[in-house]
Each structure stands twice: as C-alpha cells, then as structure tokens.
Nucleic acid binder design. Structure first.
Lengths: 329, 329
DNA sequence: CTGAAAGCGCTTACAG
DNA sequence: CTGAAAGCGCTTACAG
C-alpha cells in the first residue's frame, strides 16, 4: 500500500540497509548514498513506519500523562490543561508524543501496566497525588522513567516553589507597611497550603516588630467561607495572605460591604493567577507561576532520563513571581 | 526479553497460530485449545505486543485529540479539559487510547500528517475551529475517520444545542413574567453567540406581547464591558440573556451598585456552568450542558466509524438544561 | 562504506 | 479445528 523502505532502496539503487542507515543518521554511510537516498525519500514521499521501527527497537516515542478525572480538586482547573499543553509542546520538539491516560480506578491502573509492558510508552509524567507505591514500583521494575508533578519521596519531581510564594507574599505586604498579618488557608490538609503558610510564617517571624495575630485561619468552602470569615471578624489585621482566589474573592466582597477600603485599610495577596483574580473587586494581587512552563520543564526532565537510559535523579522547584494589582500597595 | 506468543505456544503445546486465534477471539478454535492457551497466558503473564500486532494489521488503536494551545479563547478553560477526559474514558472502554497533539502552527500540521501516514493513529477528534480544509482533505485522503466538535460543513460533528439553549433561556424568562428582554452578546463573530441569539430571538418573536427592545447589544471585553453597559444604560429591560458568565458578572456588579434588585426588578440568565456563575452575587442562573458527556459522545461517534470501516455520516446536537439559581424567578 | 540475511512478534491465507 | 510458512516494515550484526 504505502511506500516502504524497500521501495526507497530500489528507487535509490541501494540496499534497504543503507536506507536504514540514512534514517538513523548512521556515520557508516557515504555522502553519495546520503544524497541518493534523500532524493528518493522526497520523490516517493516516504515516511518510515513507526510500528515496524518500534517493534525492533522496542520503543514507541510516546510518553503517558496520567490524570485522575474523578478528582475535580486537582484537575478541574485550567492550570492542569496548561501543564499538559506545555508538556506536549516540549515533548513534540524532541520527537515524542503525549498520550493521556486516566487512572482513577484500579482497573485503569491495570491498563497502565498493560500499556507499559506492551511498550506503548517510553516514559510517564504524573501528578504526585497519583504516585501510589504500587504504581511507582511497577514503573521502576519495568524500567520506565517517570517524573512527578509535585514534591515526592520518589526520585524525580518538579513543583512550584510554594514556600517561596508564601514568603514573597508576606514580605511584599510587610514592605508595604503592614504591621499585623494573617494567613487564611482553604484546606488545612493540602500540602501546598501548608507550604505557603510555612513561607508566610518564616517571613513574618523574621521581622521582630511584626505581629502575627490570628496567625492562621482555616476554612474549607472557598468564597462562602471567606465571606463569613470577614463578616464575623471582630478586628482585622493590616493584611491578609490567602491561599486561593475564591476564598479571597469572598473576603473582598465582605470587606466591600463593611466599607473597608482595600488596599488602604487592608491589603491582600493570594496565589495563582486565574480568571477569578481578575474578577475580584478590587483586582487581586497574586503570587503566580507559569504553569505551562512547569509542563515544559517536566517534559524536559523526562527527556533527559529517556536519553540517559538510566535514572538521573532530579528535583526542580519552579520560580514564582508577584503580580501586583489592586489589593496591595 | 519479555514473553512472546511463541513462549505461550510452547507452554500450551499448540502453535503460535492457535494462540493468535485465541487472542483475536477467532471462532476457528477448539474449546480445549482455548483453555490451554488461557492458562498459559496467565501463567506466563503474557501481554501481546501492540507494536508487532499493529504492524501487521496496520492499526495502532489510538486516536488523536487535536488542540491549539495558542488559542486561549477556545482552550483556556476547563470545559475543554472535561471534553478531553470524557473522550479518553469512552475510548478506553473500547480499548482505544488518546493522544494529544497541538496543531497551532503549520509545522505541527505536518506533524499530524506524519503521524497519520505512520499509522500512529486510527482516527481523530478535533475542534471545528481547527478543521481547516487542507487538514480535513488530508485526513479523508488517508482514510482516517474524524469527528469535529462544533458544527461544520464536514460530515461528522457534534455540538451543543446553542439555539435551543438561547430559546430555553428566553422562554424561562418570559414564563417568569418578563415583558421586555434584551440579549447581550460577547463577541459578535462567534458562532455560538449568534446561535444563542437566534434561539433567543425565536422565543421572543413567538410571543406577540413581548417587547424585544434593545434587541441585542454586543460587547467584547467580558466583565468590564458588562459593567459599563449597565452603568451607562438609561433604561433597563425586565430581563437579560447574556452570552457568557463574565459579562454577566460585570453586569450584576453594576446592577448591585445601582441598587437594582435581582431577580425582583431584573432577571438574568447566562450560559455554561463555570466557577464564575457561582461567584456571581446573586448566583447566576445558567443554561448548561454536560461537557464531559460531549467528549464521551464524540468518542462514541468516532468508534462507530472506526468499526464501520467507512464513513457513516453523523451529526449530533447535545441537549442542554436550565440550572435555576438566584438571578431568575 | 555496503549488502544479504536474520530477526523483532505478530497475523493470515493455505493445506490438511 | 490446526500448524507450517510467508509476510508486515524495519534494524543490526556479519562478512566483505
């Protein structure tokens, strides 16, 4: 049907071995042959079959990106989409393809195993939350490199620098004159919330004259909770650092109703730059990271391992940056 | 290295042909052989190589999902992620895998061609916006079935029923007593906006006593535009149908500032149920569709074509539903 | 530097 | 119903 390596060989007047050498950039080939083969390939619109090639070299040039579509908390947002796109792009530049695989249930985990032993994929990128012991053990045993998104006890991971993010937020507020700060966290069990608090805390304690009264408040319902928190508060600090946009959104609305001027009377900084940050009134200042870049980096880390052949241990913390808008001075 | 069909054959005391027949559920095999082979496969943990199989049958059991990561307008939202997950799930149940491929630039379009002729994929799902003539022609020529997400002149597509959505919104408002309605659209060049208006329009004109003054207002910057629109409006209709959540958000904030009671004095209905709808104050009533279901359906349509072997022309309009919240009576 | 040949792991007529 | 054999399109020692 389609044109094969044999057709090219015949057309070029060489053997298939020579064509194959050309395809693989082998040094064992004369310039003259190179030219002939190149011409024939163009003339015939030849495209090597990855299936045949993959079969002999036992590689598919594709990596799996694991997701859990049953976990809206982790994946129901577009930053995940951006990570994915970033990874696809970076991988594409190295000639690799990206396959999506949801592994919510145990059945799907078996599916992953199947894919791995079938050699359908050469590597995997997965969120740390999905990195169960059995899964990682399987990957290691099958000699498939993987990189995690999010800190982990496993060797290779990449994450945003949440501690730094918390520190930056607090420092900015202190520099802007806030004498008393309060951290509001949505979800005390989430590690990124706790990391942001850790950074916040370090920055506050570094200044002898700063009061960290109400040092930390935890809520768990986003906007509604943030709103309630403000309406019921007796006294307010000079500034809030809030773990997420939605909680901040609710707080700002309540502040507005109480006619508290932001940022004049109270300042606020949150994290992650989403649509909600821009809908806040006034617009929310935020410590953000470039999530697409995170995906790109993850892909590059994996590519390195794919090349090295064996595990090179890598950890990477992505830098964050402050986006000053209207809730901070 | 890994166990092959030959190992299984030897272990089971049959020929590789028989094992292959078992693998392919061939009827040409005795029950006795079936049992022997099944046992051996389990004993040996045999997993057939998709690469070898794919090479002979010229199929890879994977479909490509095309995206354009440079177009934030279409893909910078989580509904796209849900479509993707839905597709992955549905495909997975049929034993197919999902590969992501971004095709923003011309270079990537060549990459798609390569993937197709390499037989790396058996079919493709793509947003209608990406369905350029050359691309579809290539797919057709290469005999690769595809389904579009969004209405199209090409044969197979699936879309949300935007006309119906517009109609439902208007009818609900009319039934709730609105005597004058106004449609606010964000982006007069977007087909889904125009379709929603079309349904709105039909519903309004069906009622002789309904006034459609200010029949349609177009803006193009979301929240800010919605806000300005209300602050500068001289008189207001009984109800608004708004093409998107963000514009509605801005309008509601302005209404609040003007102390117009919603939904008592003015009602409002928008489309798509996102996070913003719930952050509106009062919470936005919305006509929504199940986007994940859209992905599932798209996958099923493609699967049908993959099975049928040849093009079966299908169009599918996904039903929508009203989610009544606080902005409608 | 080059080609003939074996082999990667499967499927599928073909003959029995 | 079963097996021997050819073939899918490539790569890679091996001998030259």
């Amino acid at each position: 049907m389609s044109v094969t390596i044999r057709d090219v060989a015949k057309h070029a007047g060489v053997s298939v071995a020579t064509v194959s050498r050309y395809l693989n950039n082998s040094p064992l080939i004369a310039q003259e042959s190179v030219d002939k083969v190149r011409n024939s390939i163009q003339a015939l619109h030849y495209e090597p079959s990855f299936l045949a090639r993959g079969m002999v070299i036992q590689r598919s040039q594709t990596v799996a990106f694991l997701v859990d579509d049953e976990n809206p908390d982790t994946f129901g947002n577009d930053s995940f989409l951006k990570i994915q796109y970033g990874a696809e792009r970076a991988l594409g530049e190295h000639g690799y393809y990206l396959m999506i695989l949801s592994v919510g249930s145990a059945a799907r985990e078996k599916a992953l195993r199947k894919i791995v032993v079938e050699k359908r994929i050469d590597g995997v990128i997965l969120p740390a939350q999905l990195a169960k012991k059995t899964l990682c053990a399987m990957l290691t045993e099958q000699d498939v490199p993987f990189v995690l998104i999010g800190k982990s006890k496993f060797s290779n991971w990449i994450d945003l620098d949440n501690v730094m993010a918390g520190r930056i937020a607090a420092e900015k507020l202190i520099a802007a004159g806030a004498g008393s700060l309060c951290f509001v966290g949505n979800g005390s069990d989430k590690v990124f919330v706790n990391e942001r608090y850790e950074g916040f805390s370090a920055a506050v304690h570094a200044q002898a004259n700063i009061v960290a009264e109400l040092p930390r408040i935890d809520c768990k319902s986003g906007a509604v909770c943030g709103y309630d928190l403000i309406t019921s508060a007796k006294e307010l600090p000079d500034a809030f650092v809030v773990s997420d946009n939605e909680t901040a959104f609710g707080m700002l609305r309540a502040l507005d109703e109480r006619s508290v001027k932001v940022p004049d009377q109270i300042q606020m900084i949150s994290f992650d730059d989403g649509i909600v940050a821009r809908l806040c009134h006034p617009m929310l200042s935020v410590v953000d990271i470039d999530v697409k870049q995170l995906g790109i980096q993850a892909a590059n880390m994996l590519y390195l391992q794919l090349q090295a052949g064996r595990d090179v241990s890598q950890q990477c913390l992505m830098p964050v940056r402050l986006i000053s808008r209207e809730t901070s001075r």
